[in-house]
Write a protein that binds this DNA or RNA. Structure first.
Lengths: 110, 110
DNA sequence: TTGACATATTCCCATATCGGCATATAATGG
DNA sequence: CCATTATATGCCGATATGGGAATATGTCAA
């Protein structure tokens, strides 16, 4: 056995910076491939490949329009990431730090 | 040029399921390596390697205690992930769907 | 010191990945 | 049909990766 496939889920799809860039552009509205190529300054085949990965995990959808293919964002697959990360929010949030202090004090008084 | 390093940031560190498992266990409190080995049922060297990646991105910290090394969670590096993903929340949240409807209606009335 | 325990590191393999280049496929305009 | 435009795919090379096995390092206990 060897390395496990990594492009098979949203966590991995999004771990690649260029794919996040693509999503960030698409967040501003749907785009044909060439717009992405221009905006990101990447080679066209590279963009197509990244789009493929994003498609396979459901983060983008395509629609044919003449000879163009319009890509649109679908953020649903990001929800599991959001949920997982959110459970660690106490680690960095000042709000939670203060809450911990209060809870500790309460515990002292018991 | 070729493949870019992927274990160098939190996005990638966390893209590996077993590393998320490790963090999930550590979320319950600090642990020596062997506890992780037992709880996750992984080979010890493998756990040490994953811990190394997590250490390098700052997601865990170590403390020596006798012949054990106690690992502790530090969630701070997760904040950028949280922030990035959060900006896509409208994509899946029903709340935001309803907000969009309201905003569209307001726009109609102008 | 010696031996047992706890952890990290090294070497190796199989494979997944990103990027470049060339090429295939597909739709359109003439 | 042909040329052009738009996109996807295939192949290749370099390298990163996860896991296994063996071994190194480090610490304590007797």
């Amino acid at each position: 056995m060897a390395r496990a496939a990594t492009t098979a889920d949203a966590f991995n799809a999004v771990a690649e910076p260029r794919r996040r860039q693509i999503l960030d552009v698409l967040a501003g509205g749907e785009r044909p491939v060439n717009d992405l190529v221009v905006e990101l300054g990447l080679a066209q085949p590279l963009v197509s490949k990244h789009l493929r990965v994003l498609r396979e995990v459901g983060l983008v959808e395509v629609r044919d329009e003449g000879r163009q293919r319009i890509y649109r964002l679908d953020g649903h697959p990001l929800k599991p990431i959001h949920d997982w990360v959110k459970s660690y929010e106490r680690s960095w949030s000042k709000r939670f730090d203060r809450l911990d202090v209060v809870l500790d004090e309460l515990k002292q008084k018991e």
